[in-house]
Write a protein that binds this DNA or RNA. Structure first.
Length: 272
DNA sequence: CGATAGACCTGTTTGC
DNA sequence: TGCAAACAGGTCTATC
């Protein structure tokens, strides 16, 4: 479900409610949600009476920083939801609950793919996906030079930009949208893109992500913000989910194909 | 090194 | 209508 804009929307909603708040206790309802289940007692007790100092996002990871440099690292994967409420919520797929001095934090996840781990500062490399993340695409250091430095081999440009060690937080929706906006075919080998195309691509990625954050993310079915609200960016998508429909720009039937194992939609006329 | 398939789960949509 | 297959925003691992 959630890519960078959705995770950013969740983090922005949580920050005010969590920073300065304090963890009183944790209930784990599905042990497999915890990344190191053998360490479950440490997870359940390690946060008691710890103050929350900050709530941030890195790629698609949510990072909650607590006293003593403890990091609560949460990945929503496909259907995870992180909800805050002052009242008791009845949730059908509840996996973890944090009891706070004020309110509660709920991790709800239909498919159980989501993960939560508790790590000290010196242990962050244990979270391999987190540790090896590439640049934040909305930061200034995501630019032509960065992309050129990352290019090797000839894999499809779509696989390249979905690689989290290249661009942190880009997922299937915004990869397709960015390639459409940049007018580049998703199966183009990455080493055939010229500088102009790489520049348009990085610009398109920034534009598409920023627009979705403004719209509070894309909601098809499961994504909600930290209060259960839906995003509206699904009303602005140009290609994702529109296979066999007509291109808004030229009317050509959009093609749906598999690239790098992921469903991909594009316009054979607008994209070169 | 890269590409591909399968695994992890549950719910919804599609196709015969 | 009914049921089985296919599919879904994401990673991780094994295998070639």
């Amino acid at each position: 479900m959630p890519e960078l804009p959705e995770v950013e929307t969740v983090v922005r909603g949580l920050r005010d409610k969590l920073v300065g708040n304090k963890v009183l206790g944790v209930s784990v309802l599905n042990t497999n949600t915890i990344k190191n289940p053998e360490d479950i007692s440490r997870f359940e007790e390690g946060l008691n009476n710890k103050k929350i100092q900050d709530v941030n996002r890195r790629g698609k990871y949510i990072v909650i920083l607590l006293e003593d440099y403890m990091h609560l690292i949460i990945h929503l994967r496909m259907t995870g939801q992180l909800l805050y409420s002052d009242d008791n919520l009845e949730l059908t797929h509840l996996r973890v609950v944090w009891n706070l001095a004020k309110g509660k934090l709920y991790f709800n996840d239909i498919r159980k793919f989501g993960t939560v781990s508790l790590l000290a500062s010196g242990e962050l490399e244990k979270e391999k996906g987190y540790w090896s993340l590439g640049v934040e695409p909305l930061d200034d250091d995501f630019h032509l030079g960065y992309l050129k430095g990352k290019i090797k081999g000839n894999r499809p440009v779509k696989s390249f930009i979905l690689d989290q060690s290249v661009i942190a937080g880009l997922g299937n929706i915004y990869a397709d949208e960015s390639l459409y906006l940049a007018k580049i075919l998703p199966n183009r080998p990455i080493n055939t893109l010229n500088e102009f195309e790489l520049k348009s691509l990085s610009g398109a990625i920034k534009h598409v992500l920023a627009q979705s954050i403004k719209n509070k993310g894309t909601t098809f079915s499961d994504f909600v913000d930290s209060y259960g609200g839906r995003g509206s960016n699904q009303n602005h998508l140009k290609v994702y989910g529109r296979g066999k429909e007509n291109c808004y720009e030229c009317g050509t039937t959009l093609v749906k194909d598999k690239i790098g194992g992921r469903t991909t939609v594009f316009c054979l006329n607008c994209q070169k």
